[in-house]
């Protein structure tokens, strides 16, 4: 099987969708000749032409609004946020115009809103955020956050083909750090389905995006101590795969919820509620949350290191929970 980085996998998925469906087009800041701040659309403008790879003014509401307008004529726009932190600039357009349109007036909004999120690259408070929960709390949206190249490619293709607005979160820390096998040919990964990243017996870590790799490192260390950790990669944050969540809890009876997003109002709270509803009787210990701090993402490396969840945090909490 060929290998690709997380970044290349997304590029392949987008390229293939644009090749096969002429209604797909990209719109965003500096995505044309420059190829995007992270080069996701590098070379696209030469192949697909400037009509389908559209550079815009620095105006996120205009990007989302124009993408939605084009979608109303039957197009499938893929709008890029240069950094996901800037999605706040288009919040009203997404939450009130786009996400509610099918419910209110029966107009589907088949757009993809994609871009880099996440910390660990010393990007500071405005180039490191994880904005998923604003949109997980928005009925009408779908929210996707892959952790592997194979999932990233399969999910971007599903997102493009979906009839609903899909927020596609690309973790920038993974762009060129993760390289792995990517299936050949045209394949998709379904939105709304979690993936068992690592089977285990003693406790489950439910997580997504870059933290899947943190959990994996911790699991390898814990395995040496005889603690077998199961890792469930959610992949889609809205709608959540309740069945897979319940299944892993019923199997290991102990669960850690891990995410890079901040703690209060983070996805872990929602996951805990689902576990309470679906598998309360199966729990043999308290539900443990490991998240970043309830602060903005700090800039200086020691501060950011302190802010983010780390392998040692996971190892420590897993030992405690295992012994409970």
């Amino acid at each position: 099987m060929p290998q690709a980085t997380y970044l290349e996998a997304i590029r392949q998925g987008l390229w293939e969708e644009m090749e096969s469906d002429p209604t797909v087009f990209c719109i965003g800041e500096d995505i044309g000749i420059y190829g995007g701040a992270f080069k996701v659309t590098d070379g696209f403008v030469h192949h697909f032409g400037p009509q389908r790879v559209i550079d815009t003014p620095i105006a996120e509401s205009a990007i989302v609004g124009a993408a939605f307008g084009a979608a109303l004529t039957g197009m499938r726009p893929v709008a890029e946020f240069q950094f996901m932190d800037f999605i706040g600039c288009a919040f009203n357009q997404i939450v009130n115009m786009v996400a509610k349109s099918h419910y209110r007036w029966g107009a589907p909004a088949p757009l993809v809103l994609r871009g880099p999120c996440g910390g660990g690259v010393h990007g500071g408070p405005f180039h490191s955020q994880n904005p998923e929960m604003y949109f997980v709390h928005t009925p009408g949206m779908k929210v996707v956050a892959p952790s592997t190249p194979a999932d990233a490619k399969g999910l971007i293709k599903s997102a493009v083909r979906d009839n609903n607005p899909v927020l596609f979160l690309e973790h920038k820390f993974l762009y060129r750090r993760i390289k792995d096998e990517v299936p050949e040919g045209d394949y998709t990964v379904p939105i709304g389905k979690a993936r068992l990243h690592r089977p285990g017996r003693d406790l489950s870590i439910i997580t997504y995006a870059a933290m899947v790799h943190t959990a994996q490192e911790a699991a390898e260390l814990l395995a040496k101590e005889g603690i077998e950790v199961e890792i469930l990669d959610l992949r889609t944050l809205l709608p959540l795969d309740r069945e897979a969540i319940a299944q892993t809890v019923k199997k290991t009876n102990k669960v850690i919820l891990l995410h890079e997003d901040t703690r209060t109002g983070g996805l872990a709270g929602e996951l805990a509620a689902i576990i309470n509803e679906e598998a309360f009787d199966d729990l043999d210990g308290p539900i443990v949350r490991i998240t970043s701090l309830d602060t903005p993402v700090p800039f200086s490396p020691p501060l950011e290191h302190f802010f983010l969840p780390k392998v040692e945090d996971v190892v420590r909490e897993a030992r405690k929970l295992h012994a409970y």
Binding site: G43, H46, G49, T73, G74, Y103
Partner: peptide
């Protein structure tokens, strides 16, 4: 809340956009 594909089919309202194949070849790694 969602379009499940049975309620609406997404298709171009006026005409399928023309492909502007401006360069030969495949996606190159960046």
């Amino acid at each position: 809340v969602y379009c499940d594909g049975t309620c609406h089919a997404i298709k171009p309202k006026y005409a399928m956009p023309k492909k502007a194949r401006r360069s030969e070849g495949k996606l190159k790694e960046t």
